[in-house]
Computed example of a mutant assay.
Amino acid sequence: MKIQKQMSESMMLAVVLAIAGGFMDTYSYICRGGVFANAETGNIVLMAINLSNNHISKALQYLIPITAFALGVVVSEIIRLKNNEQGMFHWRQISLLIEIIALVISAFMPQSMNLIVNSLISFTCGTQVATFAKFNGYGMATTMCTGNLRSGTQSICQYFIHKDKNQLQKAFSYYGCIAFFILGAVIGKYTSDIYNEKAILVASSMLLIAFVMMFVSGKK
């Protein structure tokens, strides 16, 4: 029996989003001041270090992308709660459009505005994490790897202990997401070297592909 499944939870879409996620992290590091804008753990630690050293103004600089990430989560949740699924677009597509616009704006900002650019990328990642939290029935992130590495490794252990092939498939899904994140990072490195600030348009194009893909209904 064929069961209707949202394309927004398919592994095919996870692949596209993971490539975009890896690209954004590499771009922010290479082109925008040597920072990783996707996950906020580093920013929180650096903010705490500067607070402990009484460098208040510098600590507040790290608070901006942290707040932007949280704002992205808030925006995603508002869109989800307010959307009645009766319009032309799925609520997740609306979130993607906002992400695309944020990245396109980033492409035309100079180096003097790196803090704003990294905040826009953090906002995009917060929106993406909150909007696309599950693929193929598995909780999975496409803008960071730590959780996927943990879950994939746990599944491998479960497979060797219980010989459950479903756990092996689950592990491949998590490790596959990490692999495509790495691919996105590699693409980000080479395109950033060539196109500099404008390279982020590649990531926005990947999100546009994801947007178009969601017009197709998945089948399980």
Rank of each mutant, 00 (worst) to 15 (best):
I209Y: 09
D25K: 00
A102F: 09
A102L: 08
V74N: 02
R92Y: 00
A130E: 06
T131L: 00
Y190T: 04
V16A: 08
Q6S: 15
L168C: 06
A70D: 00
V45R: 11
F172Y: 14
H90T: 09
Q111V: 07
G21P: 09
C31W: 01
Y159C: 04
E77Y: 03
Y195W: 12
A107F: 05
I3K: 07
I178C: 07
S95N: 13
G72T: 00
Q93H: 05
S151F: 13
I101F: 13
K219Y: 08
G139C: 14
I44F: 12
E85A: 13
A107M: 08
I156G: 12
F172C: 15
G218M: 08
V202I: 14
S155P: 06
D164N: 15
Q111N: 15
S122Y: 00
A179S: 13
L120K: 05
M47I: 04
N38V: 15
T131F: 03
N38H: 06
N43S: 02
V74F: 05
F172N: 04
K170G: 01
M11L: 15
V117F: 01
T143K: 01
C125K: 03
L81H: 14
M214S: 11
I3E: 10
G176H: 12
I79Q: 07
T127I: 10
V212C: 10
V212N: 02
F89G: 00
T191H: 02
L81G: 11
T143W: 07
F180K: 11
V202E: 05
S8R: 10
I105M: 02
Y27L: 00
L81E: 13
V186F: 14
A20S: 15
V129D: 06
N114F: 10
Q154N: 13
V117T: 05
I116D: 04
F108K: 07
F123G: 01
F160Y: 14
G218A: 14
F160T: 05
V73Q: 09
L183E: 00
V35W: 06
A59Q: 13
M7F: 12
I94E: 07
I100S: 04
L149Q: 06
I187P: 00
I98A: 08
I161Q: 02
L60K: 13
S173E: 05
I200G: 01
F36D: 02
K58V: 15
L120N: 03
N38R: 08
L71D: 02
L149V: 06
N118E: 01
N83K: 05
V186H: 11
I56R: 14
G188F: 03
V202C: 11
S155L: 11
I100L: 07
H90E: 12
F215D: 10
F181I: 02
L115Y: 00
T41L: 07
P65C: 07
F181E: 02
L103N: 09
F160G: 01
I187K: 04
P65Y: 01
V129I: 11
I44S: 11
Y27C: 01
L60G: 13
V186P: 08
T142G: 05
F23S: 04
I187N: 04
G176M: 04
S205V: 03
L103A: 08
L168Q: 11
D193F: 12
M144N: 12
N114Y: 11
Y27G: 00
I98R: 01
